[in-house]
Simulated scan of single mutants.
Amino acid sequence: MELTAACTPGGPCPPQVLLERSRGALLGLAVGDALGAPAENTKPSEIRARWGRIEGFVTDDPSGTDDTEYAIFSGLLLARHGSALTVAHVERAWHHWIADLDEGPFRGAGFSERGTLENLRRGLAAPISAQHRHAWSDGLAMRAAPFGVFAAGRPAEAARLVAIDGTVSHDGEGIYGGQAVAAGVAAAMAGAGPASVVSAALSVIPSDSWTARSLRRAVTAAPRGERAVRSAVVIGGYPWTDLAPEAVGLAFGAFAACRGDFADSVLTAVNMGRDADTTAAVAGALAGALRGVGAIPVTWASAIGPVRGRCLPSMRGYHVLDVADLLTPETETPR
């Protein structure tokens, strides 16, 4: 059963409600990632030609991508340091878990992550490590949900913490995209309605930023449906689909168009194509935080297992639900 009630204004959420929303946010991210992965870098016309309309998993062995693995990476880091997180902590974690390992062949990390790793391996430190060609990608937005889970009901704190994480790998609009997602999830964790979730996201980024303008256009178009959201946000002719202002706008547009319904929000994001795994992961995190883990269809939830380490070998074996529980330490996990 999905959660619909808001927490008491000005007061803490009941621990069990927080746990349900934490699990909803991170499992929702993983479900969206796995649903969207086959449609990544496609157009809606290509989706229709191949699958008609995607209404569930289109592979026999669904799995997530770097979106889920990097979210686990950031979630574990946040669980270790909490509000005391510093850029030095993040930089050391990138070295310890990723950059200083013998990673073998390239296995699916995004361009922003590859650029960051190259800079770190050359001895560059943050924020210079984020000076690469893809600093405005959605690579921070894809791993931002754990910060909203941790800072439930505190969008500004979620935005502050995710910016610390992002300093190693992103700049400018790439940071703003992560902040918008983290703040939106933080508001949803407290039971804020879809309009308030959007307002929280906009409150933590510059109003004249590309990300804010894209997000506002998407939400304004949302009542007219999926095609209108896509038309309002997508940059025609631009070769890269993982630009943060576009991906974040599409994700919030899908969430707003479906009024926070989990399945509809995620499938809307998937069927818009472009960077579909990330947009669906973000939409899933927002809707999962708002509605709780019970809103995720059982067949989708049961398909998500421990990650396989295809992108980050050091994350192999971790499950997003374990990270959700770590980020709500005051909650006694049911046995």
Rank of each mutant, 00 (worst) to 15 (best):
P306F: 05
D208P: 00
T241E: 12
V270R: 08
A130I: 06
R310V: 11
A135K: 12
E46S: 04
I47G: 03
V198M: 07
L19N: 03
G104C: 05
V198H: 00
G32A: 06
A130D: 10
P334Q: 12
S63C: 09
Y318R: 14
Y70P: 00
A195M: 10
A222V: 06
L18F: 03
V17E: 12
L243A: 12
A99S: 14
G284F: 09
E2W: 05
V282K: 03
A79C: 06
A182C: 14
G249W: 00
I72Y: 07
T331S: 12
T333M: 13
A37V: 02
A244H: 00
M189E: 02
D100T: 03
A324E: 11
E113K: 01
E2F: 09
E113A: 10
V31N: 01
L78A: 09
C258K: 13
Y238K: 02
P297N: 10
W97S: 13
L327N: 07
S209P: 10
A39F: 05
T167P: 02
Y70I: 08
V31G: 06
G56P: 02
D322V: 14
T279H: 02
A34N: 04
C13W: 07
E103R: 14
N271A: 03
A152F: 05
A276L: 09
L120E: 05
D165M: 11
A289C: 12
A186Y: 01
A200K: 06
G292M: 08
S203R: 01
V266D: 01
G184V: 03
R154Y: 01
V307H: 09
S265L: 14
P206E: 14
V31K: 03
L3H: 05
I164Y: 02
R143K: 15
L327T: 08
R121W: 10
G317F: 08
S314E: 13
V149H: 11
V293L: 07
W240P: 00
P239G: 12
R21N: 04
L243F: 11
G177C: 07
R107M: 13
V17Q: 14
A303E: 12
A301W: 02
V162S: 01
D261F: 01
V197K: 00
L124Q: 12
R274H: 13
D261H: 13
A93D: 15
T167G: 08
A84T: 14
L29R: 06
R230P: 10
P313V: 12
V181L: 09
F147Q: 06
P297A: 08
L85I: 14
V197A: 02
V266Q: 04
G123K: 03
D322Y: 08
G260H: 04
Y238F: 15
A34H: 04
D277A: 12
V248D: 00
G273S: 09
G115S: 07
A159S: 12
S231C: 03
L76W: 09
R224Q: 15
E226W: 04
G52R: 01
T4Y: 05
G260F: 06
V181S: 04
G273N: 05
Y238G: 01
E2G: 04
P245T: 05
Y318L: 07
A180R: 00
S302A: 15
S137D: 07
I164V: 15
C7L: 07
R122H: 11
T220S: 13
N41G: 07
W136F: 09
L290G: 00
V270Y: 11
A190H: 15
W210D: 15
G225L: 10
D138V: 05
